[in-house]
Amino acid sequence: MRVFVGLLLVVLMSVSQTAAAQVKVNVYLHQSAEQPGDVTWQKSYELSQPERISQVYERILSDLNADDLAQINWSASRLSSDFLQARLERHRERMVEQLDQLARHWSRQDEQQVADSIKRLAAQVSRWPLQATYSFNLTPDQTRLILQQNPLLTRADGRVFNWHLYSFPHKALTFGLPEDLAGVDNDFLWRVLPNGTVAKQPVAYYNKRLPAACYQHDERSPIQSVNADQAQRCAIKGNLIHSVRLLSEYWLTDETEQLDLELMLLAKFILPNGGQS
């Protein structure tokens, strides 16, 4: 396996000019649910040559003790770059701005309670602990086996890569607005599934056994907007990262028709366990 990857590196040198520049990889190990966000181990690697994910993993193997290693929930790990994180923050700013506009709109229509709910959501969104990631469900075994799941960390995607690792167990939380607030959608709950899929799940008395509408995560364009038409039907079997309760479609204007979906583009990047980064 290593021989194979090495050969590729040779090929790549001639292909990619940007690949030659140095990148830095920070690895953080977060402790389990009892103390969300606590970093119990961290290490920085300055890579003078571009390396693949699996090579960084091999470095972690030699630096981390075996018992901590056995507790890592790899599929919950988050790998992003400074570039990607910056894009996510820009998207967050846009969403907060849209929410503020929507709140002003309903305020003008004398729907003060709804406007208050929307403001409350906007405040939450600006505080969400977000950690962008290219791929969900990043398991080292798959990266070592499949080249297409084992990209090079290069200047093309960022100067600094952050790899957040989490220990078991994981506790799924619910974010967003409380159930009893004006303007809240109590008929559907948004779910984030372990593979990054965002699902709109029917939960009301009349629809709760109907299939959910799912939007898949695309690791090659992690923050790209999706269209409601792209929904696929899916069944949710109880495994999820977290849930989010958002606004009822009724209160979305023509300009903000897809607001919930766009908000989920942020919410799926809320840190596992809702921990602070």
């Binding site: 599929s75 167990p169 994981h170 372990p194 495994n239 596992p272």
Partner: peptide
């Protein structure tokens, strides 16, 4: 020990 079954996070422990 604690044992988690299911593919991912919210599965039963």
């Amino acid at each position: 020990a604690q044992v988690q079954s299911g593919v991912a996070q919210e599965a039963s422990i």
